[in-house]
């Protein structure tokens, strides 16, 4: 059984480090639709792919969050990428594979993957 001691070790490592704050105007937000339509279409593995991908690649200033239904259920899973000072980009029918591409192309290189965006 995993112990709370390991959690204490994490706290000691993290102390003094400042976390991301949502209101920070340098933070890119990756917003995954997590209503019934999104979940049924596969939003949970997409969310995991973004969270783990951002962590693996060590990308700073990116926050992965959720939202409810935005009324475009047939296009779910929908992911919005909101970068400060830029127009919001809406990706549709996202899969974990597409998520990896979006991380590499958009979040790291700044190139929108236009073939996956809403037309």
């Amino acid at each position: 059984m995993k112990s709370l001691e390991e959690l204490k070790a994490i706290r000691e490592r993290m102390q003094g480090q400042v976390g991301l704050r949502e209101e920070d105007d340098t933070v890119t937000r990756v917003v995954v639709g997590m209503a019934t339509c999104g979940i049924a279409a596969g939003a949970r593995p997409v969310l995991t792919a973004f969270a783990e991908g951002v962590q693996e690649k060590g990308i700073k200033n990116v926050m992965v969050t959720q939202t409810g239904c935005i009324g475009l259920c047939k296009y779910e899973p929908i992911v919005e990428v909101i970068q400060p000072g830029k127009e919001k980009v809406t990706y549709i029918k996202v899969t974990p594979e597409k998520a990896k591409e979006i991380i590499d192309q958009h979040l790291i290189r700044g190139q929108v993957v236009s073939e996956y965006t809403i037309k």
């Binding site: 709370l4 959690l7 994490i10 706290r11 993290m14 992965v64």
Partner: peptide
Amino acid sequence: VLGGIPFDNP
């Protein structure tokens, strides 16, 4: 245990 460290910390 965590104090102020958030759950979404990797």
